[in-house]
Amino acid sequence: MNIFRLTGDLSHLAAIIILLLKIWKSRSCAGISGKSQILFALVFTTRYLDLFTSFISLYNTCMKLIYIGCAYATVYLIYAKFRATYDGNHDSFRVEFLVVPVGGLSVLINHDFSPLEILWTFSIYLESVAILPQLFMISKTGEAETITTHYLFCLGLYRALYLFNWIWRFYFEGFFDMIAIVAGVVQTVLYCDFFYLYVTKVLKGKKLSLPA
């Protein structure tokens, strides 16, 4: 464990909690892409299948359970409890254009052609594009609630910190995983224009609104 990975995990945890609290407290999922949340639930499900087969640490197990629990709770709040506030018209990204290519790629490019490894690879590739429906929705509505921008900032920051973690691990431990690194770079790059808007607008107290 190193400082980049720890702050990365905490940033990821913060994002998940911020979103869950936002929906729960405001009793509304307006502006939130349910499709992205389903993709994240799928990412955690396919990545953490080893939850019960290999024990790494209490921290690792607890965080995995929290991530999976919050992901499904968020999907439940969006599609069941606060379904009336779900903005389906603007959440129109065709996720099959993500899942199918990612599924194909994970079968073609992986470290080991075993079910668990292919599912892990699928989750890594999927996570790198899972935020697209949410970013697409914001571009369609032309704006985002400030709390939603904080959620997105923490979520984008987490994988950016993981990039530093991989540099650290390569330098000090001689380990690196090209699949995770390439997907992590793609994932972080997808947030760049949002990061720019967040820093230039939200941090200056303005509302995030895109030139429609």
């Binding site: 990975r5 965080m63 470290h111 973690n165 691990r169 431990e173 380990f175 690196f176 995983d177 995770a180």
Partner: peptide
């Protein structure tokens, strides 16, 4: 194997 090492990440 070395790659398996990274599976200690979330």
């Amino acid at each position: 194997d070395e790659e398996g090492k990274l599976k200690d990440e979330l």
